[in-house]
């Protein structure tokens, strides 16, 4: 086990904010493009943008998943109880999994659909459909699963960012600043104590 660091490395920070931005954009886009009243031509192109950025999100999230689990280990912020630390870790693990699971479910929607609309990421790369049987029923099921997972992730992101803001504005610790690359107030004393 590596020792927890006092701050996040730049790759962690870049991946965190890039993925956060893409995922939040995809949720807004996903919601807008599935409104029944939308113009069909616009809807078609929004679906294609959604799939393109969705595949990009999947790629980045898969890299981040491995990177975070294998390498990212930071000391708990000053003043956090073991319970709070555990809760934060569980939240991070849930977000790591959902960031991969949600786009995988989206890829399933595209793959099981009898319409067989290709996923042509950014009009550059054909992303093959997953080798699964196609049916309207399977499409309806995966559409539901994808939506439920996506909106559940959104709920978790609200909790997660709410906690971050709470740390920043109420606890006045460095939880939020260090995910922006901040290196102020490194507190080295508690490493051993809080290691999990």
């Amino acid at each position: 086990m590596r020792h927890p660091a006092d701050y996040y490395n730049p790759l962690t920070i870049i991946l965190h904010w890039l993925i956060a931005l893409i995922i939040l954009g995809l949720i807004v886009l996903g919601f807008v493009m599935t409104r029944p009243s939308i113009d069909p031509s616009l809807q078609f192109s929004l679906f294609q943008w959604h799939k393109s950025f969705g595949i990009l999100a999947l790629l980045l999230a898969a890299i981040r998943f491995i990177h975070s689990l294998a390498l990212v280990r930071v000391r708990p912020a000053a003043g956090m109880s073991p319970l709070e630390h555990r809760a934060a870790k569980m939240m991070h693990h849930a977000l790591l999994v959902l960031a991969v699971g949600v786009p995988l479910a989206g890829w399933m929607v595209a793959s099981v659909s009898p319409l067989e609309i290709p996923t042509f990421a950014f009009n550059l790369v054909v992303v093959p459909h997953l080798p699964v049987p196609k049916s309207d029923a399977a499409e309806a099921w995966w559409t539901m699963a994808h939506a439920v997972l996506a909106y559940s992730m959104l709920a978790l992101v609200f909790l997660h960012s709410g906690a971050a803001l709470y740390h920043h504005y109420r606890r006045h610790d460095d939880v939020l600043t260090r995910i922006f690359g901040g290196r102020r107030h490194p507190v080295k004393t508690s490493i051993r104590e809080w290691r999990s």
Binding site: D39, P40, S41, F44, L115
Partner: peptide, 13 residues
């Protein structure tokens, strides 16, 4: 053979 494609083809798109 696909109602959704037919509807799309008939639409303004």
């Amino acid at each position: 053979g696909q109602d959704r494609i037919d509807a799309f083809l008939r639409s303004g798109a």
